Simulated assay, not measured.
Amino acid sequence: MKQFIDFIPLLLFFIVYKLDPRPVEIAGHGFEFGGIYSATAMLIASSVVVYGALFLRHGKLEKGQLLTLVACLVFGGLTLAFHSETFLKWKAPVVNWLFALAFAGSHFIGDRVLIKRIMGHALTLPDAIWTRLNLAWIGFFLVCGAANLFVAFTFQDFWVDFKVFGSLGMTVLFLVAQGVYLSRHLHDADPSTSKPKD
């Protein structure tokens, strides 16, 4: 469920982006609603609300959520400040590659790979499986970042659709594949499946 909370601001971003730009006046201030820049403002505002609510509820944000929020504020803020969507196009690749770097760094820093730190409380697996799983997440984030970058600068008319639904689709497919992989290896750590000794 936590993985999909990140998509709430993206979905709101997508909805506003798809609206035909129209002038709107609130409290005597006029602005254009619809299109990339008001969608970016919606992305920033909804991210602050979503992650702010999570912070109030749990008293903290996970590092990944904090990274996502900071990236949204930085790249979204630059997009609005310079009136250039190029900055926003770099957000998804940079965030994905930073996640890949964090997962890769955990092979060399600390006593457990990052995926084991995240999921180890719920699953008991051999270290070799944790290592493979961590490598899979590194690969996923590298591919996801590269795909977002390629689409953003090659297929300009479809990059927002891909940013929302392409990323969501890749995440769902990867999580399903991870579930299938884990189901094949859970018995490796399940004492009830081991043969009794004579």
Rank of each mutant, 00 (worst) to 15 (best):
S47K: 06
D111R: 10
A102K: 01
R57S: 08
G139H: 00
W130T: 09
G179Y: 10
N148V: 05
I36F: 01
I5V: 15
A136R: 12
F150K: 07
G77D: 06
R22W: 02
L66R: 00
A122V: 14
L182N: 12
D198P: 15
L142T: 05
G110N: 07
Q156L: 08
T193K: 12
T68D: 11
H187R: 14
G166F: 05
Q65A: 13
G105N: 02
K2D: 14
G139Q: 11
L98V: 04
H83C: 08
V50S: 11
T40R: 05
V95H: 00
V50T: 03
G166W: 02
K116Y: 00
F55A: 09
V24A: 03
F141S: 03
E32F: 02
P9I: 01
A100V: 11
L133G: 10
I44L: 04
F14D: 08
K91G: 07
A104S: 15
G64C: 00
L54H: 09
P93E: 06
K60W: 13
F82D: 05
G166D: 06
P93K: 01
S183H: 04
D190E: 05
F31R: 01
F141K: 01
V95M: 00
S194V: 14
L43R: 03
L175Q: 15
G145Q: 03
A39Y: 02
V74Y: 11
E85A: 08
F103P: 00
L80A: 09
L101S: 10
V164L: 13
V48L: 14
L182A: 15
L56V: 09
R112P: 05
S183C: 12
G179A: 08
A122G: 11
L149N: 07
A71P: 03
L135E: 03
F174I: 09
W130E: 14
S84A: 14
A104P: 12
F14G: 06
N134L: 09
T171D: 03
D6N: 15
W90P: 04
I26C: 02
V50Y: 09
I8R: 12
K89I: 05
M119H: 07
R132F: 11
G105F: 02
Y181A: 13
L123N: 05
D127F: 10
R117H: 11
A136T: 10
P126F: 10
L98G: 01
P23T: 03
V24G: 02
N96Q: 05
W137E: 03
G30S: 09
G59E: 09
G30L: 04
L43A: 09
P21T: 03
L78Y: 06
V151R: 00
H121L: 14
K2I: 04
L98F: 09
F4V: 11
F99A: 00
L43W: 05
Y17L: 13
H187D: 08
L168I: 12
Q3S: 15
T193G: 06
A102Q: 05
D127K: 11
P9D: 01
P21Y: 10
H185D: 09
G30M: 07
D190K: 14
F140R: 07
F174G: 06
A39W: 05
L173C: 13
G110L: 06
R22S: 13
H121T: 15
A128V: 10
K195D: 11
A53M: 15
W159L: 06
I118Q: 04
L168A: 09
F150L: 11
F150P: 00
T154N: 13
F31E: 01
L54K: 15
A71D: 08
L80K: 04
P126H: 13
A81H: 11
H185M: 02
V160N: 13
F153G: 02
E62Y: 07
V143K: 08
